[in-house]
Each structure stands twice: as structure tokens, then as C-alpha cells.
Write a protein that binds this DNA or RNA. Structure first.
Lengths: 356, 356
DNA sequence: ATGAAAGCGCTAACAG
DNA sequence: CTGTTAGCGCTTTCAT
């Protein structure tokens, strides 16, 4: 261990300002400084201020590891990415991470991430991160209807926050986008254009969002007084391929739809593929609405109408909620939501040729 | 601070096995255990083994914060994502993270990531992470020809490893994919099919890869004895839009190419768009080769011929290199490379109609 | 309202 | 080779 790097990347590289420096500079003891920094009520207002000003001046920031050794907390958020998931997760990952990271950074926290290949792997990763105190709490993206991560963390009494909902969300803080509203609005939009035969391609059924979005679609149809044709509803499409297959089913049915609503953006891209194979022109023979996570620039053919989601601000809000929970606020029943943004790229009514 | 969560997520949640437990169980002192665990040579083979066995048995793992307080190192890799970058970074991010994370995890390390919006932001983030000892070293993705991050870390004497090359790579450990070979092979492949007018759309010029890949293309042309037509070479295309614009230029030139090689996959998708606008059928009127980062499932129209990159194993190797550097190995001049994988999806020779 | 003192889990001189 | 001792930077009783 006695080589160049040991010293270089070793301990007291840049003589950091420590709590002792603070104490000396202020003529107080370390313990007073500590309590003042942590806002204990038994320290006088005056001292609190004096200490905090000095911290500012000397740019003193308690070393999180040193704190962690006593408190067990390290000011770090954990995020475990599940990669066995379908590709759909990928396009918005960067934005989402940017948000989470920003939210953490603003409060002086950091983000520890790990990727897991499968379920056992994931559980194991959680355990290691917790055992070694690498994360004080977790952000759980892509909530599943009955999420095993939730069971695990609930039982371990570790703070967490969900991106998405739960069938049973007691004691869960969550944030979600109201995809059901988007789906309902999609229907209304298409109905206003004159469509009456509207298909629906749902997303991954193990996820909470699928049930909700489907409800939104059904609600929209009901609101418009349109009947539901089971032949025009497909489930569980999360990739382009899935979407293409589902769309093929709908388009080849006895009575094909003039418009298709997709719960997942990738599925919408699949609809394009299926339509092309059948010589159908999107925007004339068929209208497509996609719920959007794919960043604008990554689209070859963006759905004509889309509901885009601000994944970055979602990440930021999730960070904030989690940090507050870890700090001790009782947010076990916090529910926050955001709307997807409507974005029309020129969808049209049903083609005159379509005879329904 | 005195509420439910303080205790819950607080310190000695699960009574961890400490070095004292080890010492007691072994009838040794903490210091001996410590040195044995760290493989100091002044501890007898026998003891080393005894200690390590016991660690295994009790599943003792030194608490990284506690170590960090003395050593300054926390067994954590840093990764700062630059988001102002173009979208191209996004599709392979998940795979890349999976790799980095796996590489870290295998050695018992963790991954701390942060996102930065712009350059100042990034520098600031580096400083904070270093000052607070949140990362022992950094992985720098998307190496630029003359990378400011490299200057910063070199000067601060902090270990790092580059994904990509440097104009001046003295004292830099790096790993890179041989994109230049892929480009050269792309040309040879097209030439073998009978193409002679081959266009080239290069990637972001500030990145090291652009110069290299272009060289590879030129080399391929030279090897084939084909002349270079400057009209058939475009620069700096990293998005679909860029690619479409560049392709438009080439296709509308006096003497359009029968095939186009793209340094960046997104640009290849742009070529598809431009071709479609001109009524050209890919695979008949025009062949396209793309250097691939877009995961298979995320393609609407994958380039006919592609060189796909294993971003996951790249991440893994980068982790490993960095960890070894941090541990003190002198790898300042390590250069590792990998090949892109050739993947033909049925590209064809020039259309008979094209008269050149 | 503040200080003194002990200790968190670990490493690292210095002895012997 | 191993034990003794002294911290690292911070928090936290317990006094005062």
C-alpha cells in the first residue's frame, strides 16, 4: 500500500475545515458547534446564528462519513435500477437521473445507484446497500401493483418513495403522473375529431400504471357514449415489437379502428410499423396517440398526438420527498401527482374511406 | 429530531459485526484484525487466513465510512453525467450504468452519480464530491479531444479513467472501442457489394472519436483505391435531425452517394428520414451503415448494417480499471480497447439505376 | 445554554 | 509478528 497513490488519494489531501477549527474560531466547544449546526433547541438563537455564519465563512460542512459513524446516516439517496425490465425504461433514464440528482444536490445529498439484473440480485443489492449504510433511503421507480421492494423496505423500516402507485399504498409516499387523465383526454381529443372506433393498447400489466391508464381510456369512451369493442383492446405492450403485434391484431380485425391510443410510447412506434406494413398512412388512414417518455430527438416518427412527461421534475420531486422522509417528516401518506403535457402534432379525423 | 424515524433509520439498526467482535472472537487485537483484513505483510500467513475465515464466517465487512474517516477513501466510484450533451448519450446510458455498477459491485464498491447541466456546474460537482470524499475516483464517459475534466483531475491528482481517447493521453488510463476499425470495415463491406460512391457523416467534432472514425473511413476508402469526394463528407451530426440535414446535403449533391456510412447511430436514423422524404428506399436505392449505441428494441428502422457496441462490458471494464488505479496500481498509461460487433441486416449493392 | 468527556468503528504509528 | 495507544471528525450523554 505504500506507493504514490496511497498518499495522493489518501486522507488529508486538502486540509478540510473540521469542527475543531470551527470551535477554535468561535471560542466554543465542538459539542456546541455540533448541536448548533444540527439546530438543537438547547442552543441559544444567538449562538446558532454565530455558528452558522462562521460555517458559511469558513465553508465548513460536516463530513458525512464522520457523522455516519454515529448517526448511521450518510446523506445519500439510493436508486436501484432494474434492467431486466423492458427497454422502455431507457430513453427517459437520463432525464430522470438528472432530476433526482439535482434534487439531491440542492440539499447537499448524493445519489448512490446500483443496477440489478434480476429479482434476487435486486433484493441482495438492497440488503448490501442498507447493511453498509450506503443509502439512507430509496427511490423506487416503476412501481408495480404489488411491489416486492415495498414489502422489503416496509419490513426493514427504511424510508422510501415510489414513482408510481400501489394497490395497497398505506404508509407509502408516492408521486405519479396522472396517466389515466392523459388516456381519457386522448379519447376525447379523438372523439372531437370524429373518431368512433378507437383502439387501445395497454402497457405492462404488472405495473400499476396499466390498470389506471386503461381505466382512463374506458372512462373516456364512456364519457363519449361510445361502446367498448373488446377486439380493439390489447394488453401488455411495452416494446416496439409488442406494439406492432398488438396493432396488427387490431388492424386485421373485422372492424378495424380509425385511431389507436397507446399507453406506452414504444408501443405507438410499433403501431407505425404495423401500419406501414399494411400500407396505411398515419395521420390519414389511422391516428395514433402515444403516452410519451421518448425524448423528442430520439423519435423517428413521433406519435401524432402525444402526452409528454417531465421526467426530470419527477425525479426532482421524488428526491425531495425522500429527503424529507429521511429527515423525519411523517409523509407516509403523501401522494403527489403531476399532469402529462398534451402535444398535438396534427392528428386528423377518420379517413373518409373508412366505413364505420 | 426526536420522532419515529430518527430511531428507525438511525444508527445501530441492525447490530452490525464490528472489528471488535472480530477481535474478541479471534482473541486478537483490533489492530491485528485490521491489518490482516488489509493484507499487511507484517501479519503472518496463518493469522491472515484465520482472520479472513472468521470475517467470512461472521460476514464481517469493515464499515466504509469508518475507514474513510481515516483513509479518506470510501470505496465508491464517481460518475458525472453531462446532460447538456446531445440526446445521443441517452439510449445506452442504462446499459453503461449496468456495467459500471456491476464492475463496482463485484469488488464491493458503489457508484455515486451526479448530473450536471453545464460546464461550470460540472466542475462544481467534481469539487464537492471530492471535497466531501464522496468518490475516490472518476469515470469520464465521452472523452473530448482536449478534456477539461482531465485537466481538473490531473491537477487535483485524483484517479480517473476515460471512456474514449485524448489528444494528449500521457498519464491517462483509458478504454475505448475501436470505432475507426468499424468505419473502415463498413467501407470495405460496401465496396465488396459494389459501391463506389460512399458518403460519410461524422459525429460531434469536439469528441475524440470523431477524428478517429473519420480516419477509419478515409483509410477504408484509400484501401479500396477510391477517391474522396469532399461533397460526400459531412461533419458534426449527432442527432436524427443533424443526420437528416447532413444526408439531405449528400443526397441532393450533383453526384449523390449510393451508400452512406454514419459515425453515430442517430445520424443513421436521420438518413432514413431524409431518404424517405426523397422517395428513396433504403436497401435498394441507398445503403446505410450506422455505428450503433441504440439498443435493438428501440430502433424503428435499424440501419441495414451496423456496428454494435457492448456498452455494458465497457462500463464494467472501466470500473475495474478505475478501482485498480485507486487501489494504487500504476495504470497511468493503460490503454484498453474493444471491437464493435459487425451486424448485417441485409444491405445490398448499388441500385442498377444509379449511374456512376 | 454550554462544556467535559466518552465513544462510534476503524487505522496507524510505535513498541516490543 | 503482534499488542498498546492514540487518534480521525463527529455526536451525545451527563454535568454544570
Amino acid at each position: 500500500m505504500n506507493n504514490a497513490f496511497t498518499t495522493i488519494s489518501g486522507a488529508k489531501r486538502h486540509n478540510r475545515v473540521t469542527i475543531s477549527d470551527m470551535a477554535a474560531a468561535l471560542g466554543l466547544t465542538k459539542s456546541t458547534v455540533s448541536r448548533a449546526m444540527n439546530g438543537y433547541p438547547d442552543i441559544s438563537e444567538t449562538t446558532q446564528l454565530r455558528v452558522k455564519r462562521m460555517a458559511e465563512k469558513l465553508s465548513y460542512q460536516p463530513l458525512s462519513h464522520a457523522q455516519a459513524i454515529k448517526t448511521g446516516r450518510t446523506r445519500s439517496l439510493g436508486l436501484i435500477l432494474q434492467l431486466s425490465d423492458h427497454d422502455a425504461q431507457r430513453p427517459f433514464l437520463a432525464e430522470f437521473l438528472a432530476g433526482v440528482s439535482a434534487g439531491a444536490h440542492n440539499e447537499g445529498w448524493t445519489l448512490t445507484i446500483a443496477a440489478s439484473e434480476n429479482h434476487e440480485d435486486m433484493i441482495e443489492t438492497f440488503r448490501v446497500l442498507l447493511r453498509d449504510g450506503k443509502a439512507d433511503g430509496f427511490i423506487l421507480p416503476r412501481a408495480m401493483r404489488d411491489d416486492p421492494r415495498v414489502r422489503l423496505l416496509r419490513e426493514a423500516e427504511v424510508p422510501f418513495v415510489l414513482f408510481g402507485r400501489q394497490d395497497d399504498d398505506t404508509d407509502c409516499a408516492w408521486f405519479d403522473i396522472l396517466g389515466e387523465d392523459a388516456m381519457r383526454n386522448a379519447v376525447m381529443h379523438l372523439v372531437a375529431l370524429g373518431h368512433t372506433r378507437i383502439g387501445y393498447i395497454n402497457g405492462g400489466t404488472q405495473y400499476a400504471y396499466a390498470g389506471l391508464r386503461k381505466q382512463g381510456f374506458l372512462q373516456g369512451m364512456a364519457d363519449a357514449g361510445l361502446p367498448i369493442d373488446p377486439d380493439l383492446i390489447a394488453e401488455d405492450a411495452v416494446t416496439i415489437k409488442d406494439g406492432a403485434e398488438a396493432a396488427s391484431g387490431l388492424l386485421d380485425s373485422m372492424h378495424p379502428p380509425t385511431a389507436i391510443v397507446c399507453a406506452v410510447d414504444f408501443a405507438a412506434l410499433g403501431v407505425y410499423r404495423a401500419a406501414a406494413e399494411r400500407g396505411l398512412t398515419i395521420g390519414r388512414d389511422l391516428s395514433v396517440v402515444g403516452y410519451d417518455g421518448i425524448p423528442e430527438g430520439a423519435h423517428t416518427q413521433p406519435p401524432l398526438t402525444t402526452f409528454s412527461v417531465d421526467n426530470k421534475s419527477a425525479g426532482e420531486r421524488l428526491s425531495n420527498i425522500l429527503i424529507r422522509r429521511i429527515r423525519g417528516e411523517d409523509l407516509t401518506n403523501l401522494r403527489e401527482t403531476d399532469m402529462a403535457t398534451f402535444l398535438d402534432r396534427g392528428s386528423t379525423g377518420p379517413a373518409p374511406s373508412s366505413k364505420n
